[in-house]
Amino acid sequence: MAKPAQVELKESAADLELYYRQMLEIRAFETRCNQIYRQGKAGGYLHVYIGMEATGVGWLHAIKQGYDNVMTAYRDHAQPLVLGSDPVRLMAEIMGRKDGYSKGKGGSMHLYDFEKRFYGGWGIVGGHTPLGAGLAFGSKYLGEDRVTLCFLGDGASNAGVFFESLNMAALWDLPVIYLIENNEFAMGTRLEYHASDTELHKRGFPFGIKHERVDGMDLLQVLSDARRIVDYVRKEQKPYLVEIMNYRFSGHGAADNDRQLYRTKEEEQENMLRDPIKRLEDYLRKSNLMTDEKMEAMQLAAEEWADGVLEEADKSPFPDDEEVYRDVYTDMEPEVGH
């Protein structure tokens, strides 16, 4: 486990308020997602970020938002929220509506906002990791100093194509940061049952990639590590492998109804003591940066915000039938069906 935060505060009170608000909003948004899934308003597979908020918020405030490239797997709601994508369009996509970012053809696992340089949203475990190297390759080829963040799960860190990507990233000095969000479970398989060496950051070692394990639950620690590593990668134009220790409080996906198949209630409760939101609140309180009243007001505001987002998204109609044939190609229709 990572050590507790020992960082100097570089954040202004206004910054901290923003980060706190975004963490609250992610949790409220994700709670609505779990709800609408149960109501049948979202289908397929849906994976929420509850418990992991400090990781997303911290790392995405360490980059140049809208300039640097960001990509992740299918637990992908939080990243575009932090990057400033339209929350209504995100929710509409999750609900399969016309106004969604993919017009209802992507869904929860496939969110994209290319304008914000958020490149998804991928469903094949490990499959997106060479794409992340490719974003970095492309940006570097074009002479830009963009950094690419490519998130993946601990389960994906076993995929062959991930190792191929690490090798190429190191071989060609690509400014990509692979961020293994180690929430200790590959779906329902515990870390020690799926990884021969559970210190996943060491997978950078054979490729000569700088690697380390960092905390993902304490926002201030996350910000401090993230800024240091992003600055290094931008300056040195080399890859980095980071293992972020965090924990998801919900199931693997919204359809994961029996978490006790793979972890005990006691273990969950113990880990929930690490709640990144509570931890930030403790800090804000102790440092006299925010009063309890203000925090409560912000919590309420986040809930109201999420209700409003859901209400707006729910107004969006389902896509027209003609939409089924669109966007297969840039310049032609697919072969006709039945």
Binding site: F114, Y119, L131, F137, V161, M168
Partner: peptide
């Protein structure tokens, strides 16, 4: 490239996304 077909196609696809 190294002899890694999935890696090559993946990295080329990622590069295509940003304009190559």
């Amino acid at each position: 490239t190294p002899i890694v077909e999935p890696g090559i196609v993946g990295i080329a696809t990622g590069a295509a996304l940003v304009g190559l």
